[in-house]
C-alpha cells in the first residue's frame, strides 16, 4: 500500500519535470537557431530595402516596400573596378572552375582511396600520410611555388590553371574520404572479384563505384564548398576576366564611388553564397549520412 501511494505522488511530479526540461531544451535550441539565422536575416532585409530606408531605419526592421533593384544591380550592373557587369560573368567563372575541379579531384580521390585501402603496397601508408599532410599545409605557403608551376605550364591567370590548383589541393581530402570509406569494404570482396577474373579497373568500376554514392556526395559537397568559397587562390592566380565570384564580390564591396550601397553588397553576397546553400539543401542529408557511414557497421 505504502509503495502504491508514494508511486502515485511522484508520478505527476516526474511528468512535470520532464515537460519543463523539454521546454528548456527547445527554448535553448530555438535561441541558438535564431542567433545563427540573424546575419542571414539582416542580409535579406537589407538587400530588399532602398538606400534611403537603410539610412533611416534600424538594421533589424522589415522593409517598408520590397524592392529588387539592388538584386538586379548586383547581378548585372554593379561595378568592380572599372567594369560594371555585376556578378554574372564571375559567377560563371566560378562554375567553370568549381565543376571540373570538383569532378576531377573526386575521381582522383576515389582511385587513390581504392588503391590505398585495397591494393596496398610497400610504403603505401607513408604515401597516405604524406598526402594527408598536404591537406594541412596553409594556403599561403604554396602560393609562390604554385605561381612558378603555373607560369611554367603557361596556365598563369587562366581558368584551367585555377582548376589545377584546386584539384591538387583537394586531392588530400578526397583521398582521405574515399580511403576511409573503402577500408570498411571487406577484403574478401576484392579477392572474390580477382578470382572471378576482374582486373584493377573492372573491380573499381563494377564493385566499388556502385558502392560509393554516399561518399561521393560527401566529397562533392565538401569540395564544392571549399572551391566555391576560396578567395586566396582566386585572387592570386586569376587576372581580369578569369576572377571567381568571391574575388568579384570583394571588388564590388570595396570599389565604391561616393555612397556605399549596402543593399547591393548584401544582394551580391547572397548571390555568391546561393550555390553552396543550394548544394547543402539538396544533398545535406546524404552529407550527414555519409560522414557517419562506416563508423557503424550496417
Amino acid at each position: 500500500m505504502t509503495n502504491f501511494s508514494t508511486g502515485a505522488k511522484s508520478k505527476p511530479w516526474r511528468l512535470v519535470r520532464r515537460y519543463v526540461l523539454r521546454f528548456l531544451l527547445y527554448a535553448l535550441l530555438g535561441i541558438f537557431a535564431l542567433y545563427y539565422l540573424m546575419p542571414l536575416f539582416v542580409m535579406v532585409v537589407t538587400s530588399l530595402k532602398s538606400l534611403d530606408e537603410i539610412r533611416a531605419g534600424s538594421l533589424l526592421s522589415l522593409p517598408r516596400d520590397i524592392n529588387f533593384d539592388a538584386w538586379v544591380t548586383a547581378w548585372s550592373g554593379a561595378c568592380s573596378g572599372v567594369q560594371c557587369e555585376g556578378l554574372r560573368p564571375y559567377l560563371w567563372n566560378s562554375v567553370k572552375i568549381a565543376v571540373p575541379a570538383v569532378l576531377i579531384s573526386t575521381f582522383i580521390g576515389a582511385i587513390n582511396g581504392y588503391v590505398l585501402s585495397k591494393w596496398q603496397f610497400r610504403g603505401s601508408n607513408i604515401i597516405f600520410a604524406l598526402l594527408l599532410f598536404g591537406g594541412f599545409i596553409p594556403f599561403q605557403v604554396v602560393l609562390l611555388p604554385m605561381a612558378i608551376v603555373l607560369g611554367k605550364l603557361s596556365l598563369a591567370g587562366t581558368i584551367p590553371g585555377l582548376v589545377l590548383v584546386h584539384v591538387i589541393y583537394g586531392i588530400s581530402f578526397t583521398t582521405l574520404f574515399f580511403r576511409n570509406y573503402y577500408v570498411s569494404v571487406p577484403g574478401e570482396i576484392v579477392k572474390a572479384a580477382k578470382v572471378d577474373g576482374a582486373g584493377f579497373f573492372q573491380i573499381f568500376w563494377h564493385v566499388f563505384v556502385p558502392l560509393s554514392a554516399p561518399i561521393v556526395v560527401v566529397t562533392i559537397i565538401w569540395q564544392f564548398t571549399q572551391i566555391w568559397n576560396d578567395f586566396l587562390f582566386g585572387v592570386s592566380f586569376s587576372q581580369a576576366g578569369t576572377q571567381p565570384v568571391t574575388v568579384a564580390l570583394n571588388n564590388i564591396v570595396n570599389s565604391t564611388t561616393g555612397v556605399k550601397e549596402y543593399n547591393v553588397d548584401m544582394s551580391a553576397a547572397i548571390i555568391a553564397a546561393l550555390p553552396t546553400l543550394f548544394v547543402y539543401v539538396v544533398a545535406g542529408k546524404y552529407f550527414i549520412r555519409g560522414l557517419t557511414a562506416g563508423s557503424v557497421k550496417g
Partner: peptide, 17 residues
C-alpha cells in the same frame, strides 16, 4: 588468380553488395 581456372567460396560469402 583469374588465369588459374579456380573458383573460390569465402567465409563472409563476399557477394557484391
Amino acid at each position: 588468380p583469374k588465369d588459374r581456372d579456380i573458383a573460390m567460396v569465402f567465409q563472409s560469402y563476399a557477394l557484391y553488395p
